[in-house]
Design a protein around this nucleic acid. Structure first.
Lengths: 215, 215
DNA sequence: TAATAAAGCTAATCCAAATTAGCCAAACTT
DNA sequence: AAGTTTGGCTAATTTGGATTAGCTTTATTA
């Protein structure tokens, strides 16, 4: 990784831990292994480093949104997949989502930085909400909609069902961001949450088996 | 309110909007209607203002915890109350909690400030989690435990049931903190959430009526 | 291979904010 | 009503940290 990118990387780490105002350009430089004035060969000033991070973030968020789609815009073609989804698969879905958000290095640091900086700039608050509230709800809502149509899950309000699935994941995420030592416990809770979710909304096991046979 | 308290009040407002580092003592002074140097007649320095706010916050959180108990430590004596709780009462419970957290002036500003400053100081992160995650979960868990014992709600995992009740409230709260214009929508969602929660976990209406007659 | 650009360094410089000095008037106190 | 405390002000002073100046070395390139 060249210096220009190392700067962004180290700056993001620091910003996500202490917030923009509490990070000194000298700190960033030190982590990169250069002196503060040398930073200015790469970025006009401190703000420009921050801006570049945000730009990078928007780019990655966009790519990621694409990657999450199972088959691009044509996800409905996959409807069959959801007809026989099992409890374990549902747990895997939730776990993957949770652990991806929690562990992916960029995602985690972006999220923490947005959490700290969100009130400075409405745009950052909006980015946060889109990424961690609105987009997950709408994407999962789409998936669950398919599952309901396929008869794997039952409800008359997919939107609320999705909220019931995702809100606990979101809450556990904010807990682990603040105190990583609670992660192990959070994973157990997550597991229990999804099992319960499945019990509440899922078609009974017998029905699923029947459905599998039919297929 | 005397100047000393006005300073804390205005400082809290500013800190909750911009974060400690982005607030100048001159800003605080201006809002109070004095000049910056005069602040130093009341507080040793900027940090002392922040510390006083945190102290005040801890005091209020403690008082509030007491106030939320229906009958102090002897809440179990009230178990009867929960035997016949209705859907409307459950909605009221959730709404009150949500709107109290969202609208109470101190609570809201404290929460926003903690959100911004939490990563500077582990103590603040802990305070945030206690106040907005652990305490609500344990207090409501206790209430729901009583309701389950009384047969109003049914589950074999009160902890997860409580998470299912509270996590959506928590998530809606963080959404409204970031964008108050979404409050109206959030209240509607909250309502639908609790109705659905009641449908999922509640004893059927007939059973409740029976239960009322018995009484 | 000389010329130029890139990327680093040390030693200033600059500047915004916090803080201190020192004065003054109002308001208690005795 | 003189003395003292309280809380305000203006005018410094201080300081921490961002930024600039100007030099050096290493890589590119004509």
């Amino acid at each position: 990784m060249d210096t220009k990118h190392r700067i962004l990387d180290e700056a993001l780490t620091l910003f996500s831990e202490k917030g923009y105002a509490n990070v000194y350009v000298a700190d960033i430089a030190a982590r990169v292994g250069i002196k503060a004035p040398s930073l200015y060969k790469h970025y006009r000033n401190k703000q420009a480093i921050f801006d570049a991070i945000i730009e990078e973030m928007n780019k990655r968020f966009l790519e990621q949104a694409g990657a999450l789609q199972i088959n691009g815009a044509d996800a409905k073609a996959d409807a069959d997949i959801y007809k026989t989804i099992s409890e374990e698969q549902l747990i895997t879905l939730g776990n993957n989502l949770f652990l991806y958000f929690l562990h992916d290095d960029y995602t985690r640091r972006f999220r923490k930085m947005l959490t700290i900086e969100q009130f400075h700039d409405k745009k950052l608050a909006d980015a946060y909400m889109k990424q961690y509230a609105d987009d997950p709800l709408s994407y999962q809502g789409m998936l669950f909609g398919l599952m309901v149509a396929a008869g794997v899950l039952q409800t008359d309000n997919v939107e609320i069902m999705t909220l019931h699935f995702y809100a606990p994941i979101y809450m556990l995420l904010t807990i682990c961001d603040r105190d990583p030592s609670r992660e192990k416990d959070a994973v157990k809770t997550l597991d229990a949450h999804i099992k319960q979710f499945n019990k509440l909304y899922g078609r009974s096991e017998e029905q699923i088996k029947k459905n599998r046979k039919k297929k």
